[in-house]
Design a protein around this nucleic acid. Structure first.
Lengths: 154, 154
DNA sequence: ACTGAAAGCCGTTGTCT
DNA sequence: AGACAACGGCTTTCAGT
């Protein structure tokens, strides 16, 4: 679970740094320093500070999973009895390795789950497993045909 | 839109490299070389090859957007008339800057859209804008209360 | 395909402004 | 907070196996 509130001490230069690292997370400090017009050491200190503040939570490679044989992507809406604690909802979902992300939702459904699987038979298995885990009262699965993700936000 | 099919020539060592880069996208080649038991040059060549194959699509920083004041996250299901081409669905959604990702769906709804906004008033504006763009026949918005993402998949 | 070595570039740290 | 300089480590490339 992510958390916490807006950090005021993130200025325009910090946003420039974040923007550059969103475009390419392996950019060198020297390249960023040149673009921003700051010394290498100053850029490094800002990145270190953004990590300490928890604004930067990490760095990751971006992968085309379809090219690795994980061609099917889906979202499954899960419904639980009103008495089910959120912690249990998360636990039952995160136990399934094909689950990429879990979003707990205000209202109906109670959770939205992002899954990645090899094929439709595999998807069926994962949905069955989600239904059995915890006391799920209902599911609805949205099969993803195509996706688009924004490269850079700012 | 992502695309294409499984690449057979990705072996176990490639998967080890991908795993290490998923944990930390800024890991050095020397560290990966030591862990895998290969020379630095060999690891670099594998990463270069995975980029050429399109398995690695890039590197990105991971950000806690709540700490930047973008505290509200939601998924909006969009419904369109049966005649609407997929390209138009994507275009209308990607035009809205708060839209982080668009997933086109088989069945009902026609699309699932991931949005990030500053507050609930802002969310209202974004939903209104999505409804007006294109000829949307209906929306349902799922407000995210909490989220969990898998660190490493393998 | 991988190794090993060489050259240049980058990251990191300390000191000064 | 940032600049600058210096050292150590890393990336990159190429010849060799």
């Amino acid at each position: 679970m992510k958390g916490a509130y807006s950090v005021p001490e993130v200025d325009d230069i910090d946003h420039q740094v974040l923007r550059l690292l969103r475009e390419d997370g392996r950019r060198t400090f020297s390249e960023m320093a040149e673009r921003i017009g700051l010394s290498v050491a100053a850029v490094k200190r800002r990145v270190d500070r953004l990590k300490e503040l928890g604004v930067i939570t990490g760095f990751a490679v971006q992968i085309d999973y379809a090219k690795l044989g994980w061609g099917i992507e889906a979202f499954t809406e899960l419904r639980y009895p009103g008495t089910t604690p959120v912690a249990e909802i998360i636990r039952t979902a995160t136990d399934v390795p094909e689950v990429q992300a879990v979003f707990t939702i205000a209202g109906d459904p109670d959770a939205l789950i992002h899954v990645r699987v090899r094929d439709l038979g595999h998807l069926q298995q994962v949905i069955d497993r989600l239904r059995r885990a915890g006391n799920v009262t209902g599911t609805k699965t949205l099969l993803v045909l195509g996706s688009w993700t924004r490269d850079v936000v700012d």
